[in-house]
């Protein structure tokens, strides 16, 4: 994905030579979360160049946007679920002018007007997805893996991968113990830490940059993954399966927001409308494997995508699923300390 950002910069540099000042959209997005084709077509249609910059955690994105200075002047960002409410409440976002957005009414009614942004004044859903289990069935012997708890088995010693995401990893620990993944109770968080530290000797690596890669590289066989990464990974490695763990998956909804210090909010509105076109939304979902909230786009998807359980879970898959919520700063500090302990423990 860094290549893409570079290509974007290069494009800006090249067109910078022309006499006419080209319009630029600074898009701040997760790595591997937007097909290049979409960016190219947007530029072709509108003449607006897209500078694509990536991050690999909500925390990193938030820390940069929070500065609200010129070094972090992005026109569009894509925070996950509760970060929308957090940033909205801290007055970091510009309200979105619905009259400039086409296609909002095609969005899944279940994914708009949520608590994180009751009237969607500040956010427009982009994609939603889940964090579940990845299993390389070619390298695993014995009973199939069906639950988070299975990761603790001896047979996976040194073959486990976790995402490099504090909240997600603790979510797993908490769920295995039967607690909510959004617990703010220090005792429960500590118990989850104790449980996770038993798993640590088995853990080979943490990765939130491209979580499919350690599986494809043969470094790990089992562990956590985002569903879209699993879908993309399966294209290269047929034996990589996405499993819905019994304790429940972690669900998230990523939304477009316009930061308060955006330089080109006009282009940001245009880009949101562009992505909301059913054809474009369908292309994105097909390409990167996450589920589109755009119902009109769902109808356009080829059967093998629409029926892919990894991208589009059914009702039983969603049993016990939990969306992450804002746990507040006090609990965050408790998590942060145990996270540091977990990663430095040996």
């Amino acid at each position: 994905m860094k290549k893409l950002a570079l290509a974007g910069l290069l494009a800006v540099g090249l067109t910078g030579c022309s006499s006419e000042e080209p319009q630029v959209l600074n898009l701040y997005n997760w790595s591997e979360y937007m097909p290049q084709e979409v960016l190219d077509r947007f530029t072709e249609e509108t003449g607006i160049q897209v500078v694509y910059t990536t991050y690999d955690s909500n925390e990193a994105m938030y820390a940069r946007l929070k500065l609200l200075d010129d070094s972090a002047a992005y026109d569009l960002a894509v925070p996950s679920t509760y970060y929308v409410s957090k940033m909205r409440q801290e007055d970091l976002l510009m309200s979105i002018d619905r009259s400039k957005i086409e296609g909002f009414d095609q969005l899944d009614p279940e994914l708009v007007n949520l608590d994180i942004d009751p009237e969607n004044k500040f956010s427009v859903p982009y994609l939603w997805g889940t964090t579940g289990l990845a299993v390389d069935t070619a390298d695993i012997e014995g009973e199939p893996v069906t639950a988070w708890e299975d990761l603790w088995e001896d047979r996976f010693d040194g073959r486990v991968m976790l995402t490099n995401d504090m909240r997600e990893v603790f979510h797993v620990g908490l769920r295995v113990l039967g607690y909510s993944g959004n617990s703010t109770n220090p005792d429960e968080i500590e118990a989850a830490y104790e449980k996770l530290s038993e798993l640590m000797p088995s853990v080979r690596t943490f990765n939130s940059d491209a979580p499919r890669m350690p599986y494809l590289e043969g470094e790990t066989d089992v562990g956590m993954i985002w569903n879209g990464e699993a879908v993309m990974g399966k294209d290269t490695m047929e034996s990589l399966e996405y499993v819905y763990p019994e304790e429940g998956i972690i669900a998230w909804l990523d939304s477009f927001v316009i930061p308060k210090n955006a330089k080109n909010p006009e282009a940001a509105h245009q880009f949101i409308s562009f992505v909301l076109q059913p054809e474009i939304s369908a292309l994105i979902s097909e390409e990167i494997g996450y589920a589109t909230p755009n119902l009109a786009a769902r109808d356009l998807l080829p059967d093998e995508v629409a029926n892919n359980r990894a991208s589009y879970p059914n009702a039983t898959d969603m049993i016990n699923a939990e969306f992450q919520t804002d746990i507040g700063d006090d609990a965050l500090q408790v998590y942060a300390k145990y996270w540091e302990m977990l990663k430095s423990g040996r």
């Binding site: 955690s57 925390e59 990193a60 820390a63 490099n164 504090m166 853990v203 080979r204 690596t205 943490f206 990765n207 965050l332 500090q333 942060a336 996270w339 540091e340 990663k343 430095s344």
Partner: peptide
Amino acid sequence: GGSRNLLVGNVIKNQFLDARN
């Protein structure tokens, strides 16, 4: 190092970016 075997540099980075301390 697979984000393990941390250095002091990692702690500093984590404090600024993740823990916001």
